[in-house]
Design a binder for these strands. Structure first.
Lengths: 192, 192
DNA sequence: CGATTCTTTGAAAACAGTCAATCTGTGTGG
DNA sequence: CCACACAGATTGACTGTTTTCAAAGAATCG
C-alpha cells in the first residue's frame, strides 16, 4: 500500500527495510460505505491505519443519540485505546463513511515491531502525545467556547474534512443538534 | 515525604531502593493558598506530584473567563503535557487552592530515572494512558450529556473533591455558569 | 428513477447565560 | 467582641440560545 509507505517515510527515521517490515505485518482490509470495523461490546484487537477513505468512531447512547469521538481520514489512525490496551469490551463503534481501505495490526504484532524497531515505538509514542494534546484542546474548546466558535475551530482543525462529512455528523462531533449547526452555517456563510 | 512513598509502593513493582532514588531526585515545595506553580507564557519544566493540598490547572481567556482543565489532589499529578514535552510556553496557569505540598521533577531528571528504573517508565506510561482515557470520557460527557448529568458525573468521578472545591470552580470545570450550577445543585439536593 | 439520506426552515418550549441584588460564612484588625 | 471586608453562594427577572418537533426541500446512491 503506497499511502502507508509514504506516511512512514515522512518521519525520516525508518529505513526502507523497516518500513517494509512494518507494512508486512499489517492486514489490509477494504470496507464498503457503512461497514463496521468495531461495534460496542467487541474488543478492539487492532490498530487501524486509514490508507483511503474515511472512518468515524462514535458511541450510541441508550436513547439512540450518537456522539462522534473522531474522524479518521487518509493517513490517520483509528482505535479505541482503552479497549485495545486492556482488551476489554469497547463502548464505541467504528464505521466507514465512504468506501475505505485500511491496514490492521494486532497488539501482539505491534509489540513485536516495537521491540524490533525502537524508533517505531518512539513515533508511536509521539503520536499518542499529540492525541492527548488534541484531546485537551478539544475539552478546552468544549467547556469555554460557543457552538459557533466550536464549528469555526473544527473547520480550522479539519479544513480538508468539513466538506466531506455530512453536517449532522459534524454536529454529533461538536455536541450540538443538526438543526443548530445548520443555522450556524447559514449565518456564517452569509445566507448562501 | 511519606505520601509519595506510599503512593509508589502501591504499584508494587518498585523496590524500596528505587523508591528512595525517585524520591531523592525530587524537589519539595510548599505553596500557600493562591500561589502559582505555573503561569501562562512560562515553560512547564516539572512534573508535579501533590503530596498534600489541592492544585487547579486552568486557562484564562482574553475576556477573563477561566476554564479549569484539572484538579489535582493528594497523590495526584499536575502538568501541562504539551509545554513539558515540547518545552514551549504554556497556555495554562497552575495554582494552589489550599496550602499545598508538592514534589517536582525536571524532565531531564525524569528521563534519567526512566533509564535507570524501567518499571518506573512503565508506571508513567500507564498513567498517561489513564489520562488519555479520562480525557476521552470527559469529551464524551461534554458533547452528549446535559449540565445536570455532567455535574452528576463529576461527583461520581471526584467524590472526595466536590465538597472541597468552591462551586464556581466546579462550574468552570464543567463549562457552565456558576448560577446554573447553583440551581442544578439546589434541585438535586432537593431544596435544602 | 425511486428510495434513502441529508439539509433546511419555522414555531414553540426548554434551557442556560447575564445582570444585579442579597445572603452567608470566614477571617482580620481594632 | 464587634465591625468590616471579602470570597463564595444564591435568587429573581430578563434575555438569548439551543433543542425539539414537524414538515418539506435538496442531494445522492444504487
Amino acid at each position: 500500500m503506497e499511502t502507508f509507505e509514504d506516511y512512514l517515510r515522512s518521519f525520516t527515521q525508518l529505513t526502507e527495510l523497516e518500513i517494509k517490515q512494518i507494512q508486512g505485518c499489517s492486514l489490509p482490509v477494504s470496507l464498503r460505505r457503512r461497514q463496521l470495523l468495531l461495534r460496542e461490546g467487541d474488543v478492539c484487537r487492532h490498530k487501524i491505519f486509514v490508507a483511503r477513505g474515511l472512518l468515524r468512531t462514535f458511541r450510541v447512547r441508550p436513547d439512540g443519540l450518537e456522539s462522534t469521538m473522531r474522524f479518521s481520514a487518509e493517513k490517520g489512525w483509528a482505535i479505541d485505546p482503552e479497549s485495545y490496551v486492556d482488551q476489554t469490551p469497547s463502548h464505541y463503534r467504528i464505521e466507514a463513511l465512504e468506501s475505505t481501505k485500511v491496514l490492521l495490526w494486532t497488539r501482539e504484532c505491534m509489540e513485536e515491531l516495537f521491540e524490533t524497531i525502537p524508533s517505531f515505538r518512539l513515533i508511536s509514542e509521539r503520536l499518542r502525545e499529540k492525541s492527548l494534546n488534541y484531546s485537551q484542546q478539544r475539552i478546552f474548546i468544549n467547556i469555554s467556547h460557543t457552538a459557533e466558535e466550536k464549528y469555526e475551530d473544527f473547520i480550522q482543525n479539519h479544513p480538508d474534512l468539513f466538506r466531506r462529512i455530512p453536517l449532522h455528523l459534524v454536529a454529533s462531533y461538536l455536541g450540538v443538534s443538526r438543526e443548530t449547526l445548520s443555522r450556524i452555517r447559514h449565518k456564517r456563510h452569509g445566507g448562501h
